[in-house]
Amino acid sequence: MARFLLLRLGLIVVTLLVISFAVFGVTEVLPGDVATQILGQGATPENVAVVRERLGLDDPWPMRYASWVGGVVRGDLGESLVQRLPITEMVGGRLVNSLILASFTFFVAMPVAVAVGIWAGVHRNSFGDRLASMFSLVAISLPEFVTGVVLIIVFSTTLGWLPSSSLVEPGTNPLTRPQILVLPALTLTGVMFAYVMRMTRANVIEVLETNYVRSAILKGLPMRQVIWRHVVPNAMLPTISVITLNIGWLLGGLIIVENVFSYPGIGRMLLTSIQTRDMPLLQALALLIAATYAVSNLFADLAYTWLNPRIRFA
């Protein structure tokens, strides 16, 4: 087990190195000179040269890459070009906000999706199953920015139950006003919920057909025990893979949803950094998102291993 973990952690480091290289490369080839960007259109060439000198932009790229990566390793993500603040400080609070929104979505939506999927699979072709299938089809086909706007119109503009904007007052935590989380989380949930639910349903149906479920039924076990001890653990194995894939989707969704609801998370920050060509910030955020994805994948794999004795300790 220790060897497995060590190997996986090593792989994550390799993954992040490759990603850092890609992120660095992409920001390198983006058009627009950072120094000009900082100083504005009217900057004199001398000033531009000074700024370039100060930022080390004239160094060859391997050196700049090395100093950037070196900084990251020491916990120094650099300085934002626009706000002139250490990125580590800027990102901290935003990251917490995003994680709160993502976890809220993940830990509420996933269990519900799995539960609905199990129910629909067991009661295949019932009215409830058809309703769930229809709902999930609609959810899958609508992109987040549509769902978000529709939810705002219904629950905020029309019914007035929930705020349409999810701004967090500086110095406070989103959890002090949890109602602001509901609409973004619902929006973010839509597609994921549908995928996971449909996948769970399909797996439950498949497992119900297996010989070992037949054995369980013919052992005279109560149906509830057949479902919870024999069907669900086996149906969860492929579902976990889908959930893992959805973590990536969730992170991508954050960018859109945070912007629709003006929620101060890293997704919104990422978009701002692109608009203002704040390269160091963009690089830092991209790397951060990749790291989150890699680590959550590791946890998903651990869960899979734990559920599947066939690959346990492999």
């Binding site: 010989n211 070992y212 054995s215 001890r229 024999h230 004795p309």
Partner: peptide, 12 residues
């Protein structure tokens, strides 16, 4: 049953 491998729950 025939095929005991499939008649036993693989995760139990």
């Amino acid at each position: 049953y025939q095929d005991p491998g499939s008649a036993l729950n693989p995760t139990m």
